[in-house]
Nucleic acid binder design. Structure first.
Lengths: 329, 329
DNA sequence: GGCTGTTATGTTTACGTAAACATCTGATGG
DNA sequence: CCATCAGATGTTTACGTAAACATAACAGCC
């Protein structure tokens, strides 16, 4: 900066002013400074800036792996929104989703060049961790509950699930089976609970719940079991990957979709329209979730809003060809 | 830091020594300092550290979206490897893959708190951009060519493709059709070229090339066309998503896989084993690519190696149930 | 016992920037 | 024609850390 100042024949403070787009600089001076910057290839040093300003203009994202579509899509939206606001995004992968690992990530966080954190993680993992957080770091949690302790942004899991179940009931199915995600997952639990509620309110029996682990493979295993239940004509899978495995199992067992069994998924991943048959599913607006997460941390950083609470992003039913009325009995 | 020093009754320099695990500190003193840190909730300020040390311990990753499995898996591996080496990863998403956008990302890079950059991007987008790079920033390019200008880590596209084609020829198919990725993609071009080479070397005719854009939807469209070619008994799709669309199109047109037509993919995404039928495909070791990228930038930063060059990560053929001998004529 | 060398700790300084304050220039108005 | 003021620019300083250098304490040796 001093070199630039010397070359432009001004003080370093003026260089700083130009570099930050400050107003009180003559057009003439500005031009000279910019020319000097160009000639010397000057780049502001972000470490010094961060030190001086007390902020890094960076948001950290803590997440357990990038294996699930939802996390990735949300992350992508966060990165885009953050870039739009002039913030960078730093990734903090947690290898194994245990409390210890999460605690580790959080304590590293203290030393990390980050102004705020977005956590895409089941919140029960956060329970014992909060205390070790540096107090100035703002947090928004995606995909979780605990709106009382944190600012939470989430897809409307319940609404989406109930829409899915209602869609199948409206087609004439007597009841709907559920292929749930893993117990540890809050999203999975919410979807299962909403499925149960919707059936109960409609006065329908609740079949035993079948569990998977989000993977297509687990959907296949569960599907082999479901195919044996002859009275099962409709299945609500808690995500599209498991629905894919389910479709394969049903096909192998000679149960036609949607003629014999209707299948509905959740997420609306890019490939869902290319399944055999194209999958009816609940569309999640991950981009909106990501955007709201960024908005949330920024608002907290500007102290506009210190109140916690949960924001729900609505879902949308996408009807393709994997659902149909039940076969005549 | 001064507060900690005061409380522990030492100088701030000693606090710094403890904080950095320096050796020449009495066990007694160290304990006191650690206790003081704990009591005051001291966290080292990473901006000041970066300013002093002249490095950020952060690697930037420039990528065009997180839509493709390959990018995501590579990114994940990069993040994990980097964390393992004590480095953080900052994401620099490029919204639209034009040279201007990429140039923008690179110039922002100069101001970004980043010691090195890994570019997961078609390199032809980099052509006009290099000059604007701050000279001290180290670069590794994944998924590209240009080993002469950069250090490149890539999957062995050619080897994988030739294995795929040979597998189909070995099964007895007279020739193999190719469903290619978009022209702009270097990986797509390499795969197409290897397909052509392998056929030529085997003395087989080269059917016209069919193009998609990596998406399942484009695979479906292309599949409808391929289904019309009655002499087509084997297709090598340049990625698994397109293979998925292709499977759907063939199914809809009454062409059985693998009895009438064999299909092979590329990538081995997690869901490939759950397609109908389970997809034979070329497995890419994204984790290894990510690891080598990190290793590459770190080596450059330690000045152990200033030479450019390309490292190829081998692939592996995963045979499932979408390939079989051709039907009797 | 004084000299040398080693180890533990303290003091000074600089990293690059921008806020706060100081100064200078020229214009306006009485 | 000078006082006043606004706008442009310069000077000083501090952000938190760690390298470089300085000092103190103490052991070993002739």
């Amino acid at each position: 900066m001093a070199d630039v100042a010397r070359l432009a024949g001004v003080s370093s403070q003026t260089v700083s002013r130009v570099s930050n787009g400050y107003e009180g600089v003559t057009e003439e001076t500005r031009r000279q400074v910019l020319a000097a910057m160009e000639e010397l290839g000057y780049r502001p040093n972000s470490a010094a800036r961060a030190l001086k300003r007390g902020e890094f203009r960076t948001i950290g994202v803590i997440t357990f792996g990038l294996a699930t579509t939802g996390n990735v899509r949300t992350l992508e939206a966060i990165a885009t929104s953050a870039a739009h606001e002039g913030y960078a995004v730093t990734l903090l992968p947690v290898a194994v989703p245990t409390q210890n690992e999460v605690r580790g990530a959080f304590s590293r966080l203290g030393e990390l060049a980050v102004d705020a954190v977005i956590v895409i993680l089941e919140v029960h993992l956060l329970d014992a961790v909060t205390l070790s957080l540096p107090p100035h770091v703002r947090i928004v949690v995606a995909d979780s509950d605990a709106g009382d302790r944190y600012t939470v942004v989430d897809t409307d899991q319940a609404g989406g699930s109930r829409t899915a179940v209602r869609h199948l009931l409206d087609l004439g199915h007597h009841t709907v089976w559920h292929l749930a995600g893993p117990e540890e997952s809050y999203a999975a639990e919410r979807r299962a609970q909403a499925w149960r509620t919707e059936l109960t309110e409609a006065g329908r029996p609740t079949p035993p719940l079948v569990r998977g682990d989000w993977s297509a493979e687990s959907g296949y295993t569960a599907g082999l079991e479901l195919a044996r239940q002859k009275e099962c004509t409709a299945v609500f899978a808690a995500n599209d990957q498991m629905a894919l495995g389910l479709l394969r199992a049903l096909h192998e067992q000679g149960r036609k979709v949607p003629d014999d069994v209707s299948v509905i998924g959740f997420d609306d991943i890019a490939e869902a329209g290319s399944f055999l048959p194209p999958l009816t599913t609940v569309h999640q607006d991950f981009a909106e979730v990501g955007r709201l997460c960024v908005e949330g941390v920024l608002r907290q950083m500007r102290h506009e809003d210190t109140e916690h609470g949960t924001t729900l992003v609505p879902t949308r039913l996408v009807v393709r060809h994997s659902t149909a009325p039940p076969p005549p009995r």
